[in-house]
Design a protein around this nucleic acid. Sequence first.
RNA 1: GCUGGAGUAGCUUAGUUGGCAAAGCACGUGACUUUUAAUCACGGGACCGAGGGUUCGAGUCCCUCCUCCGGCACCA
Length: 501
Amino acid sequence: MSQEDELLRQRHERLAQIRQLGFEPYGHAFDYTYTVPQILSEFGSKTTEELTGERVNVRVAGRILQIRRMGKAGFLHLLQNGEKLQIYVRKDAVSEKTYALYELLDIGDIIGITGYLFRTKTGELSIHVEDIDFLSKIMLALPEKWHGLEDIETRYRQRYVDLIANPEVRNVFVTRSKIIASFRRQLNERGFLEVETPMMQPLYGGAAARPFVTHHNALDIDLYLRIAPELYLKRLVVGGIERVYEINRNFRNEGISVRHNPEFTMLEFYQAYTDFRGMMELSKQLLKQVAIDGTGSESITFGEGTINFGHFREYSMREAIIEFWPCAEKPSLDNLRDPEWLGKHSPQETPGNALMALFEEHAEGRLVQPTIIYDFPLEVSPLSRNKPDEPDFVERFEIYAGGMELANAFTELNDPQEQRRRFEAQLARKAAGDQEAHMMDEDYIRALCYAMPPAGGEGIGIDRLTMLLTGSKSIRDVILFPLLRPEGEIGIANRLRALES
RNA sequence: GCUGGAGUAGCUUAGUUGGCAAAGCACGUGACUUUUAAUCACGGGACCGAGGGUUCGAGUCCCUCCUCCGGCACCA
């Protein structure tokens, strides 16, 4: 018999013994008076004398992480909400039935404890157990206590085991939640309305990306999972929702990397009567406060250095290319304005695309400290307003930190004629084979024909920001269930069935 | 898609030039009523990712495939 089948059989047998003792091992409520973290924060500083002077009775539930049995007594560690508390069971302090249950407990079982707080000889705050409720039975073996679960594939596939074996993983997702809560609070305080717009769209747009396609049976139409909410949110600005935001998933049918997951979370917000300069100011305020709310400080450690969200450098795209040019003979601003020079230094088909490619090649990865890059070429910005004094460029900026693009913002294009021309240019690119070119969205143009107020808009990648604020090197570490290939036969159903026969 | 690396017991790992697959934790039995990776004794547990091949003999060498990780490409 294999090890795993042997363990299953042992635990199946123990389940029967627990039932024989009169415990119902699944699905009944347990009224606790404290959680483990509450006990630790409330009584963690109490002395032995204080705890014995005024006895503190508690009822606590949790998962057994460790058992140290010593004859007619034993110590267990309970895990709840990412924190551990020791409990102490001794034969002469509990009923015969409770002690019999204690002897059947496995690491990983979930139990409820009734008892009182005390400190052990070595000073550890613990619960002196008076009664045990059995709440749920583990059937499989947890990873070992010292190294925990290290296999990356298992950690992602079985995040539930990862969270038990590596309790610190929980902190990443606590921080992620704080980041999102901070954006919500800050935007709500500024009068922004949170909305939800379609994730399944008959036409996709608002970004350059290939979509996922799905099908609605009753209507018999193909739908696209959205690559961005942008065009819907701007329809709402037309409709008079002058400050609007959405925090939700985007789906892009492209490669996977340490910075890319096919579904990812984006904050997009739009504000009427401002422009990209206004969005810059707002971004700085939002990001600084999010860093504080998420980590307690505007300055965070990332890799070997620190990143300070209290200060943002600013370069035009051309300045950044010059600043970070890899060799001593740097190009001049005039070089970067010269289509011929750009054509010689990049295989891209247009000067704007060439400039963008040079920026991404030389500058992007080196923008570790929060940096605002502004002045984007028109060709890579189909939804941004032109710069009045330089019509081949647009009023757009991106924010980089930790060598990654975090945010993208611009003065929204609200001229329907110009928007029509931009869509037509995209259609031409699509006809020429660009699979990521935009589609013509006539309803969106119709909306602009009802007049959209001038507005600034911005998108912030929540996953990447979470990476920075939690020191995570891979986007998979900030997504609970990152996309992996299907696992294949697991076989647990067959093994459970075999236990019953 | 291209390219480098990894896959050995439930977990974490070792495995020499090709020669009987090891260890710690976990598990089982026994001892132990304040332990801290508890301790002590004994025991069970592996189709070495899958499939082929070379060989008297393959965890080890060769081929194909699967999964994961990193890089490139694509993208935010």
